[in-house]
Design a protein around this nucleic acid. Structure first.
Lengths: 231, 231
DNA sequence: ACCTGAACACCGTTCAAGT
DNA sequence: ACCTGAACACCGTTCAAGT
């Protein structure tokens, strides 16, 4: 047996990927799934691939480059074909809900996606679909062009809200946000913050999905109301 | 002279703050101004205060706690009184432009503000003002309550876009984003991404301020159009 | 050309021990 | 109660040296 060939019967590290750009991304995705983004480090990936961190720099420019690759890989299911039929609104809602779901499952990636704009094929396909639906809905070219940013920024930012800033150890624990916010608002001095006090219940009302749907309607109403791009 | 008293004539570290919660925040703000958020570390702050990092944990829970304090301090100028007169729209625009400017000057703080909701007095004052203006503008209670989130998320996310993910060394270099995006869009295959290709110029058109003003109008139109909270 | 050991210059947080 | 030295368990990136 040539010495490069690894016997397939080795039981440990069954999915040890090859030392290529794609192999590195695959290893990173596995670690992301199992340990969270905070553990997706050059050193951790290198260890999973039985090498040193310096070896990765042959294929990956830096950590940002790696993260952008990870996001595009995660976006693959978003660009799967939509069910036939349905209004542009239903199709747009489905597309953005898929995008939101991916980001909600990986809040730390969402956080990253805000400053590192992804540019992979899956991301471009999503932008293309949203733009086409906005044009179909009657948006002006400029409203569609500027609106796609706004529409995608929203789920990204909401998902990123649920990311713990750096340590990935802590459990996500949804509901803690609301409970904490409720407490803070209840503690707000009614004399200094009268409107906050009065609207307190409304401020914390609604589930994440309800607020998401509401925001989508708000954004679309605003985008479609803009006729200034028409001459 | 009692041994605790430091002669005021010592020329180095002229503004060495006292080891208190406020002193730590002040030291952090000084480092932020001079070296960027990436250098605002427990170790760096401790060094500036002539002590070890462990000492800071007496006053600060963790890095997130510290960052939230920093943001609220930066928000102080936002809650200075608005010029008298002006429509609710002008006042709201001014308030959000101030908020945007603070975050644009500190993109890394904006990035952080997305996941760590600030809760200091200056932040609450801003929320209070925006809520009051939305109600004055005729928004329903629910539209105001949910809308304030949307209105504040937008400048935060846009500012965070300009933050380099982690290393603070690189210069901000505005325009590089647009140039890079333009190149990527030009390279987009017109057969696979026809709408992106057709809208290419519109996608990268407009200055940051133009797009900000446009987004504000879109958001407000959508928020004020929502009457579903009215019975 | 590709790969790597070792080093450089750092991190946040904890904890036992001091004052 | 407050403060701290030292340690624990890590980081990203570079570079000279190997194959």
């Amino acid at each position: 047996m040539p010495r490069n060939e690894v016997p397939t019967s080795r039981r440990e590290r069954p999915a040890k990927p090859a030392l290529t750009r794609q192999g590195i991304v695959d290893a990173a995705l596995a670690i992301l799934r199992e340990e969270g983004l905070a553990r997706v480090t050059m050193r951790r990936i290198a260890a999973a691939m039985d090498t040193g961190p310096a070896s990765l720099y042959v294929y990956v420019h830096n950590t940002g480059d790696l993260h952008a690759q990870i996001l595009d890989a995660l976006l693959a299911p978003v660009s799967e074909p939509l069910p036939d039929g349905g209004t542009w609104r239903a199709r747009l809602g489905e597309l953005l809900a898929r995008y939101r779901d991916v980001l909600f499952s990986h809040p730390e990636i969402a956080r990253m996606a805000i400053s590192t704009r992804p540019d992979g094929p899956h991301y471009l396909a999503l932008v293309e679909s949203i733009l086409a639906l906005l044009v179909e809905a009657g948006a002006t070219d400029r409203a569609a062009a500027w609106g796609v940013d706004l529409l995608m920024l929203y789920p990204t930012a909401v998902a990123a809200e649920h990311a713990t800033p750096s340590p990935s150890g802590r459990a996500p624990d949804p509901g803690a946000d609301i409970a904490e916010l409720t407490g803070r608002l209840a503690a707000a001095d009614p004399a200094r913050y009268p409107t906050i006090s009065r609207l307190g219940p409304a401020l914390v009302s609604g589930s994440g999905v309800q607020r998401f749907d509401w925001a989508l309607d708000v954004l679309l109403a605003g985008i479609l109301a803009d006729r200034s791009g028409t001459e």
